[in-house]
């Protein structure tokens, strides 16, 4: 098996008496979608935040391309290749769709310290940004102000901005959150095609999407991973049924 691109090594995080993550070791291999599921409060988002550097673990490491990035701040990890999307759309609402996408291109094009020349007129920035918008189906909305986008379009833009980074790995925190059935299907199709570019670590509540997409699934309960396996393994695991899937399946 090829080396994992992203891995956590025994991550633990305690908030007072609450164990948010307990000894979590997961990895993400090239070309795969690795979904993390679990009931609310299982520590999935806290895990994502530790991977991306927004929260510091009490112990354990985060490895990106075999490099220990545990001590690095979020923006350096993003540069190193983590393309993150947020559970609640985190976009520049006053800016246009294109400007949001261009923002994503600044670091990789080394343009953030350019003071001369309009960002919108830069060919390199524009082509990269428009490519990403094209990919998620927002090309026709490039001049729309982000605050006038529908919820579903904002979810698409979240993915587009992550795409502009050309990341080594995507880390997506509930990309389907709040989407209707159709939006969810569209985004599922989009993510399905993304894994060839970079593997996706996917936290998701939408079980249809998870079982349609995931090559592997890890189940988190009370901050610990209780099972990792293929979609079929997980569906059949008795522990998982009891802990999480319950009567759903």
């Amino acid at each position: 098996m090829s080396k994992p691109i992203l891995a956590t090594d025994a991550l633990s995080k305690q908030f007072g008496a609450l164990t948010a993550t307990h000894d979590v070791s997961i990895d993400l291999n090239p070309g795969e979608i690795h979904a993390i599921i679990g009931p609310n409060g299982a520590g999935k988002s806290t895990l994502i935040k530790q991977i991306c550097g927004e929260i510091h673990p009490d112990s354990g490491r985060v490895l990106l391309d075999d490099r220990d990035v545990s001590a690095l701040p979020p923006h350096v990890r993003a540069r190193a290749g983590l393309g993150r999307t947020f559970q609640i759309s985190d976009l520049c609402m006053e800016d246009t769709v294109l400007e949001n996408a261009i923002l994503g291109c600044l670091a990789i094009e080394g343009a953030s310290w350019r003071f001369w020349g309009a960002a919108q007129k830069s060919k390199t920035l524009r082509s990269r940004a428009e490519g990403a918008l094209d990919r998620v189906g927002l090309a026709n909305f490039r001049d729309t102000q982000c605050s006038s986008l529908s919820h579903g379009q904002r979810r698409q833009l979240e993915v587009a901005v992550a795409l502009t980074l050309s990341p080594r790995a995507f880390v997506m925190d509930e990309p389907m959150a709040g989407l209707g059935a159709e939006g969810s299907r569209n985004l599922t199709a989009l993510l399905d095609g993304l894994r060839v570019e970079a593997p996706i670590l996917l936290v998701e509540h939408d079980m249809d999407a998870v079982f349609a997409l995931a090559d592997r699934i890890s189940v988190m309960v009370y901050g610990a991973v209780i099972a990792t396996g293929s979609a079929d393994d997980i569906r059949q695991s008795a522990d998982v049924r009891e802990a999480y899937l319950g009567e759903e399946v």
């Binding site: 979020p74 923006h75 947020f86 985190d90 520049c92 923002l103 670091a107 990789i108």
Partner: peptide, 17 residues
């Protein structure tokens, strides 16, 4: 553009590196 973004959301700016 980046400066304008820091006013709106710091976490987004960090997430794009």
């Amino acid at each position: 553009l980046a400066l304008n973004a820091t006013r709106q959301t710091r976490s987004r700016v960090q997430a794009v590196g």
